[in-house]
Design a protein around this nucleic acid. Sequence first.
DNA 1: GACAGACATTGACGCAGGTCAAACCTGCTT
DNA 2: AAGCAGGTTTGACCTGCGTCAATGTCTGTC
Lengths: 256, 256
Amino acid sequence: MPTRKQEKVVSLNEIKVACQACSLNEICLPVGIDDEDMERLDAIIDRKRPLARGDHLFRVGDRFRALYAVRSGSLKTYATSEDGQEQVMGFHLPGELVGLDAIANDSHPLAARALETTSVCEIPFDQLESLSNQLPGLQHQILRVMSQEIRDDEQSMLTLGQRSAEERLAAFLISLSNRYRRRGFSPTQFNLTMSRGDIGNYLGLALETVSRLFTRFQNEGLLKVERRHVELLDRERLCRFSSANCYPDASSRAES
Amino acid sequence: MPTRKQEKVVSLNEIKVACQACSLNEICLPVGIDDEDMERLDAIIDRKRPLARGDHLFRVGDRFRALYAVRSGSLKTYATSEDGQEQVMGFHLPGELVGLDAIANDSHPLAARALETTSVCEIPFDQLESLSNQLPGLQHQILRVMSQEIRDDEQSMLTLGQRSAEERLAAFLISLSNRYRRRGFSPTQFNLTMSRGDIGNYLGLALETVSRLFTRFQNEGLLKVERRHVELLDRERLCRFSSANCYPDASSRAES
DNA sequence: GACAGACATTGACGCAGGTCAAACCTGCTT
DNA sequence: AAGCAGGTTTGACCTGCGTCAATGTCTGTC
């Protein structure tokens, strides 16, 4: 790669692009990679132009070519049942990786769509894989990220399977709060980038139930909500409501 | 590894041990590994003596050292909430891998316990990892297996989040059926190795509901159930009940 | 500034499935 | 063979949440 130096300069001039410079680097592929390796990883990553709200990053059945890391904005992933119903499977904030479920069969089992203007890094998988052959640190890191994803999914299963509506919504809000905190945003005040319908669909609740719960939580002084903007007033109590461990310690973007 | 040949002979004499000879080999780490590589993988695997019903393979918080592949019998994995309630997260049949969720934090987030007399292969993770550095085929295989796990978990989330009690139980039975079929057992006739309570807990239903559904399914001619033994009489219709894609095509142990 | 369309809130009503309680196996232990 | 324990079935009752329906509110478009 003889021309890398120049490429780097160019890309740095465009926007804040290099993985090293990216404020998310320790989130999307944290620890265990030194600067030199990071440069090599950086070299294979493609920055694409932003998606507009509603654009698809990929659709169900699309050939799997790359993993994606959200740089800014947010995505939802969803399945579509035979009767055309959408089933939201997850929301993805900056620093989170999308597409790990597509490795197994070389094809995306879910679709991903932007909830707002969103930019992503594209990480071509074959290149990532051969690079990780040369960098044991990177290989280990990929396994950790995938393992964490499995862990998070287990958390969600637990929440979805066993919890009441109020526990689910509380857990959802705490999860968002933790994830925002982790990337340096306020954990107590943020905008929901998804509709009530999306939230309900994701949590296995009717959208009316979600709406009612928001007003109930507000009446009880747990939070203040206006349209898409939420302020958590009593995070502590909300945590207890969610009957889940609430402060993010070891685990990263845990759904809890 | 100069002494491998002898070791091999010894272990073959003990029981049917080598990965190559194991009838499950293409299930627990399918395709993409040739015979020679398989031998090297085989060399790092530890066959442990069987667990008795109720024994723990590992507990919550145990240091992560190895992945486990079920050889015979079955396991359940579960979490315990602060109030001491058990939450069943999954059941594991022969050929299935357990412990992938422990890589991320070097510690097991769930406990695993034998539902019956069960034997497992222990695969020390550090050795697996360094071996996979030398064998790109193996590395790819591990990523596929983890990706499949993520996919399966997504399926379960969908089932748990959105489906009615009857759909859940139907989906559960079809999933078991598919998984038994895949390993050469009858897909229409098998024993449940877990209690009604475990099933209900796993599916997010009261055990009474599970029991009622079994008798209802039986009355409707869908199946015959006596205690732990089930015979699926109308798999077709049961599939439709489960509102999920029913025949296992691409995906392996899909929960659907 | 008025209108359309997407999103959100609120109320009324009904049912799926949870909870409580009792009876019934089936296999062990003594 | 009697008694016990863990598991299973069945019934009666009640409630959390889904469904249907009406009304309200914000955004963008002409």
